[in-house]
Nucleic acid binder design. Structure first.
Lengths: 233, 233
DNA sequence: CGCTATCTTTACAAATTCCTTATAACTTTT
DNA sequence: AAAAGTTATAAGGAATTTGTAAAGATAGCG
């Protein structure tokens, strides 16, 4: 257990930020602080952390937007801090991609326990190596930062939703994904019944990536269940 | 829109349990309730859920112990509910393996958002390349996430009902299963009298998995009782 | 303001599974 | 050995899901 876990704290209040930094540091974490969402994303590039603790209300880029941006390129655990205990705010943050929500004021011990829980969870599921900016599987190659997709060495132009769907397929290659799962992942938790969307977009994706879209080779349908993505050799 | 996420609610207060069940059910989840830790573990065997919501204070086996036991055999998300807002309790629960801690009273919307967040996380971490859950018995090998079935090294293509039936057989290999039991498990509690369904589907399964379907070797008939599954060596 | 690109909604044909029914074969009991 | 009940098998039709095209709706941009 050499390598200490890296935690990125994002908060514009210097006082709270300092408390968090020292608290986390004394418990063996490697900590950096960013004052807003924009500089958080910059730091993220140079110094990829294992976990992010972010405030909600900030200048420049708030916590919600930060969650969404991070989720596009990474699956790392995000803990949101906020004074507001309103249910609606919590729901928004969690749906934006946060893994946990802690209401200020909070005890340092509780925060530390939640950090441990999130890191444990991330470690347990950490099969993949370094969170690379490029996804590769079979005939597919996706540059997550540039949002570029190529299939069998050919560039493909996708709309945002098509892109999200394909990324999810590639990240879960080989597994059967239910309609619910896919809809929840791409459209969000409130759209899990909209099977039509999925049919339409799977059709469009097939037209763009399959050699013969009427005889799919990559996106296979599992009748009555969902779809399975087979990236090729 | 078949496969819904399964949630196991563990609570000894019937009133709260009912609120949770209806709340979760109306949002599309497949829910079961257990009244204490011991029966929760039993249910877990027959009906493995995708997420557990458990109270902390219960007779028989409390929430903390349940977390530890579950963590020994699974990584599924666990959300702990409790009236106590004391920091120490939260820390204990999180360190026992809980992924989240919600203090009563709580809003249903918040709980639903936390459920979504945990399920999303679990979904995302079941990523490609990660070793998937595999059920093995004798000549049978079932990849639960890819929904792939192979018998004696040969891939077999099954429809959903056939698949459900076979999974149930494999999970209860060697035991005699009554018609009622099988119908209840695969078709649901309202179809326990529909013996015809079962005969038809057992026949189809046999055609697909038996070397000689007129002389079954795996799915054995127990006349006047039901069937027994023998997975081979 | 109109143009473009994307997403949503609708409608219908095609495909697949599930249910139903009919008949034959089998077990046990008398 | 016949009767009564149970189990096996095949095949047609019902019900649901899936594929596809195209028409509205919406948002961003010059």
């Amino acid at each position: 257990m050499n390598q200490q876990s890296r935690i990125l704290v994002v908060d514009d209040e210097p006082q709270l930020a300092r408390v968090l930094r020292t608290g986390l540091k004394t418990h063996g974490y490697d900590v950096r602080v960013a004052a807003d969402g924009v500089s958080a994303l910059e730091t993220f590039g140079d110094w990829p952390p294992d976990l992010v603790v972010t405030d909600l209300a900030m200048p420049n880029m708030g916590g919600l937007e930060l969650c969404r941006r991070l989720r596009e390129i990474s699956q790392l655990p995000i803990i949101v801090l906020s004074v507001r205990g309103e249910e609606k705010t919590k729901v928004e943050a969690l749906d934006a991609g946060a893994d946990d929500y802690v209401t200020k004021p909070f005890g340092m011990d509780e925060l530390l326990a939640r950090v441990r829980a999130q890191l444990r969870r991330a470690r347990d599921s950490a099969a993949a190596g370094a969170p690379s900016a490029v996804l590769e599987a079979g005939d597919f190659r996706i540059d997550l930062e540039a949002r570029g997709v190529s299939v069998r060495d050919g560039e493909v132009r996708l709309t945002p939703k098509e892109y999200d769907l394909l990324v999810y397929f590639v990240r879960h290659a080989g597994k059967v994904l239910t309609h619910r799962t896919l809809l929840g992942a791409v459209w969000g938790g409130n759209y899990t019944e909209q099977g039509e969307y999925l049919r339409v977009f799977v059709g469009q994706l097939r037209k763009k990536i399959e050699p013969d879209s009427s005889n799919p080779r990559y996106i296979l349908t599992e009748p009555w269940v969902g779809y399975r993505f087979n990236p090729g050799p």
